[in-house]
């Protein structure tokens, strides 16, 4: 699988990963993981703590380079030097700890790292166009049906759900094709969870691929099209959502498959 042509013919996925292995020193976090997600597809990724979900997502979003394996985006092999490269392709990540700066306002958080600029004095003095940032942020939030008092509110003043919404708005502000979310509902009050899940559905309707890491079966079975499980750093199981059940997916997380009497967990140790 070195030739680009071969890979291009291999399916219609938005993002595909093949044989991803990742070592951290002596620790192997991922061994030969295969992964794919399509346009407008919501893929749930489940697995116990330490199963390798977060590591895989950080590789997909360019934060880590894989020790071995290939990434294929839109039919073309790619190699990320930094999250910047992934973002340029339209792969965005919403981090578990939100990655928002609480001391600055909503609009500035949305455009952090990609600030709108206007050039004064014949281009010699580039300044942040605060007004354009506010206007774009307001419009973008409206498009996503996210309601905040003002885009000039500091993020530190927002509730957990509002912060999550801002984080998602931030991820989708620039023509995103794939949004990766790490436990987006874990820190939220129950009444805010539904709003965030509906936001994810909204992204799907716009043709954006979504990868959702979650421990919550309610989330997975509310928004996902397909679910895959990692176990001890390797592929364990995967199915379309209509072909599986909550108890089966929970079994996957613990390392059991239907019909197998024993826990995979017991085999490993």
């Amino acid at each position: 699988m070195t030739q680009a042509q071969e890979e291009a013919g291999s399916g219609n996925y938005l993002l595909e990963a093949r044989g991803i292995t990742k070592h951290f020193g002596a620790v192997t976090a991922l061994r030969g993981v295969d992964f794919h997600v399509g346009r407008g597809e919501v893929l749930g990724v489940v697995g116990d703590n330490g199963a390798g979900k977060s590591t895989l997502m950080k590789i997909l979003s360019g934060l880590f380079a894989p020790s071995r394996g290939a990434l294929i985006f839109d039919g073309r092999p790619i190699r990320f030097q930094s999250p910047h490269d992934a973002r340029d392709l339209g792969i965005e990540m919403v981090y578990q700890d939100l990655a928002l700066a609480e001391n600055i306002n909503i609009a500035e958080n949305i455009f952090l790292g990609r600030e709108p600029v206007r050039r004064l004095l014949g281009g010699w003095l580039p300044l942040v166009d605060h007004k354009a940032g506010r206007d774009h942020a307001r419009q973008h939030l409206d498009n996503l049906h996210i309601h905040v008092k003002s885009v000039e509110q500091r993020v530190g003043e927002l509730s957990g759900g509002q912060r999550q919404a801002v984080a998602i708005a931030r991820a989708t502000a620039f023509d995103a094709k794939l949004v990766i979310m790490d436990e987006p509902t874990a820190a939220l009050a129950i009444k805010e969870v539904g709003k965030v899940l509906d936001l994810i559905k909204g992204l799907k309707d716009r043709g954006i691929g979504v990868v959702l890491i979650s421990h919550r079966m309610d989330d997975i079975f509310y928004v996902c099209d397909r679910v895959m499980a990692l176990f001890h750093g390797a592929n364990f199981a995967e199915a379309a959502l209509c072909d599986t059940s909550r108890s089966e997916v929970i079994g996957w997380i613990m390392g059991t498959k239907e019909g197998q009497g024993e826990l995979a967990h017991d085999r490993v140790h």
Partner: peptide, 14 residues
Amino acid sequence: YAIGGNPQAARVSG
């Protein structure tokens, strides 16, 4: 300012 608020956020913002 953003780095002062959350250096990790700044880093993942490129």
